[in-house]
Write a protein that binds this DNA or RNA. Structure first.
Length: 637
RNA sequence: GCUGAUGUAGCUCAAUGGCAGAGCAAUGCAUUCGUAAUGCAUAGGCUGGGGGUUCAACUCCCCCCAUCAGCUCCA
């Protein structure tokens, strides 16, 4: 036997008998830590607390405060979920059950989906399992033994998973209270560690995420070591739902959706104010960055789409129509239109880079199940631009767009994630051209020191892209900005320019958007601000609240005065008490309310109330004008 | 498109086979009010659409549409 020496996180070295369980070491350190410990890291590897130490090494004890331990915790809860389902539905086959951010899920193959009542019963069964406080026990076996075991247990999905492992693998399984699952581990010591849990929703999910595979029933849930933490998490979900742009869109009268036009949002006056402010800002910035602006039609001849490749590669997403017995398509992208404009002249290298912007309305047929408020629709406005340039200008242009996107997003205070999407299965062009384009994008993004991840096979059919993702209220991410490098459309459309040598050459193209879709961007903005738009975007910037009818006249004069400074003002002239009007102004999230009563009329000043903050005291009209105008000018958050 | 759930007044939600209701909003009247809801009254419905079962359907069954969550797909 003998002893081994282990080094703890604080640097202290302990001599312990070889073969001691990690948990016993922890108990030697602190009873409290022993209660909170979930899993350990021994020599950089996560291990069970039940595991045995057989050598020298570095030992770290992880609790729920560590992200890795939380993952283990949720993963273990998913095993409890699986056990509960197997207890109640012995004929169910198990899929997979990983931890996800803030919880876990488990997939089951069952004859019929779970009803809400059944889910409740499953949750109750889970609580029973927790009460029993079964230990998670690890067992290792050979691949063959594992195959036999899971074949015998009628777990075809597990068998499939095992078959994909290398032949000489050692397979680990975990058992708790008679339930057994294929699993690499590690796990928390016992089911009793889960103190509070909740099953959140049920949904179908294809086995291995492929439409060709059977659809399994996925149950999502979460769990915490303290009831209070669970309650906080559930409260956060509720809070997030209050920021849902679909709900706020109705409450704030920004837009509406109708059965008569699924995926085709209707924008109301207040929504259009935000839209137009975004466009105004966008135009100003694009002029400053050397863009020209064009507008091309939304219906174009079939031949154009055949030539661009959309007919072959994008057909399923397109809408078609016929005019005078000739077939046309509604444009799903703006690029072919831009290209026609490019071709109206003989272009010179001196024109490059030629930055041609277009706020273009595109239509795309999306599957009914993916439609989502303003985020995923069937017709949307892209703040598109196509940059035609020399190959030598590629990097500078991409960097220029990256910087522009960063400038735009920082105005709104957005954090974003960048993805580099590579060649899809159904793509045009050679691997060499693709590789070249991918390298150019990679080079540009790395030169800006921006972190990014690779999204294999997710490029457009004509080129790879850098995607910029923003988050919605529930943490789902949506692609907004994108930069796509394209060597193929110039080829397909036989684009040319005259070089300094007097010869014809082929230009390179960038397709790019910053907002992405104005609709989606507004959706994200609504959720980001929770409807409380900064003054420059707020549909109503100042709400005038007369105390009584005799103050209406003064309020009307003020309104006129503010409007002459391009401030958006409304008067709440209803016969209501001031508290009522303030409440309404707050729920409508108007940045400034101005109370107009006898005092104000007499003293010729304004009593200001700021959204969320409350009474700000009085200001002279000129002072107030300056405050509002400065916020608008600076786009103050 | 797939799996499951949902669809009742402008909004949020009741009504489990027997007269379709409430709160908020709207409208009218009274009140003329000082920093998050004044009172009273009125009006508002082909219960998403179509078919069926039943003496009787918001309620049970079938088909369709839309929405929500997720999967797949995408800006």
């Amino acid at each position: 036997m003998g002893s081994v020496s282990i080094t703890l996180k604080d640097g202290s070295i302990h001599e312990i008998p070889r073969g001691t369980a990690v948990m016993d070491v922890v108990k030697g350190i602190s009873q409290r830590l022993a209660r909170e410990a979930l899993v350990a890291r021994f020599n950089e590897q996560l291990v069970d607390l039940n595991s045995i130490i057989n050598g020298n090494g570095k030992l770290e004890i992880l609790t729920f405060d560590d992200a890795e331990a939380r993952e283990v915790y949720w993963h273990s809860t998913s095993h409890i979920l699986a056990q509960a389902v197997k207890n109640l539905y012995p004929e169910a086959s198990l899929g997979i059950g990983p931890a996800i951010s803030n919880g876990y899920y488990y997939d089951f193959d069952v004859v019929k989906g779970f009803s809400p009542e059944e889910v409740e019963a499953i949750e109750a069964e889970m609580k029973k399992i927790i009460k029993e406080n079964y230990s998670f026990k690890r067992r290792e076996l050979s691949l063959e033994e594992a195959l036999d075991l899971f074949t015998e247990n009628k777990e075809p999905y597990k068998v499939e998973l095992i078959k994909e492992l290398p032949e000489d693998s050692t397979i680990s399984i975990y058992e708790q209270g008679g339930f057994m699952d294929l699993c690499a581990g590690p796990h928390i010591p016992s089911t009793g560690r889960v103190r509070a849990l909740k099953l959140l929703n049920v949904a179908g999910a294809y086995w291995k995420g492929s439409e060709r595979n059977p659809m399994l029933q996925r149950i999502y849930g979460t769990s915490y070591p303290k009831k209070k933490m669970l309650d906080e998490h559930l409260f956060k979900i509720e809070e997030a739902k209050r920021r849902d742009h679909r709900k706020l869109g109705t409450q704030l009268d920004l837009f509406s959706l109708h059965d008569e036009g699924p995926g085709f949002p209707f924008f109301h006056n207040k929504g259009m104010i935000i839209w137009n402010e975004l466009e105004n800002y966008w135009r100003k910035e694009h002029r400053r960055h050397g863009y020209e602006e064009i507008k091309t039609p939304i219906i174009l001849d079939r031949g154009l789409w055949e030539r661009s490749g959309h007919w072959d590669h994008y057909h399923e997403n397109m809408y078609f129509t016929e005019i005078d017995e000739v077939s046309y398509a509604l444009k799903p992208m703006n690029c072919p239109g831009s290209i026609l404009v490019y071709k109206t002249k003989q272009r010179s290298y001196r024109d490059f880079p030629l930055r041609m912007a277009e706020l273009g309305l595109v239509h795309r047929h999306e599957l009914s199940g993916v439609l989502h408020g303003l985020m995923r629709v069937r017709s949307f406005n892209q703040d598109d631009a196509h940059i035609f340039m020399l190959p030598s200008q590629i990097k500078d242009e991409i960097v220029g767009v990256i910087e522009m996107i960063d400038d735009f997003y920082s105005v709104f205070g957005f954090e974003y994630k960048v993805e580099l999407s590579t060649k899809p299965g159904d793509a045009m062009g050679s691997d060499e051209i693709w590789e070249q384009a991918i390298e150019a994008l990679r080079d540009a993004v790395e030169s800006k020191n921006i972190e990014y991840c690779i999204n294999e096979g997710d490029g457009a059919f004509y080129g790879p892209k850098l995607d910029f993702h923003l988050e919605d209220c529930l943490g789902r991410t949506w692609q907004c900005g994108t930069i796509q490098l394209d060597f193929l459309f110039p080829e397909n459309f036989d684009l040319s320019y005259i070089g300094s040598d007097g010869e014809k050459h082929r230009p390179v193209m960038i397709h790019r958007v910053i907002f992405g879709s104005i609709e989606r961007f507004i959706g994200i903005l609504i959720e980001h601000y929770g409807g409380a738009f900064p003054t420059w975007l707020a549909p109503v910037q100042v709400l005038l609240l007369p105390i009584a009818d005799r103050h209406q006249e003064y309020a009307a004069a003020l309104k006129e005065k503010l409007e002459s400074h391009d401030i958006r003002v409304e008067i709440d002239s209803r016969n209501e008490k001031i508290g009522y009007k303030i409440r309404e102004g707050e729920t409508q999230k108007v940045p400034y309310m101005v109370i107009v009563g006898d005092n104000e009329v007499k003293n010729k000043n304004l009593s200001i109330r700021k959204r969320k903050v409350g009474d700000m005291g009085t200001l002279a009209l000129e002072e107030f004008l300056e405050v509002v105008k400065r916020e608008v000018r600076d786009k103050t958050q």
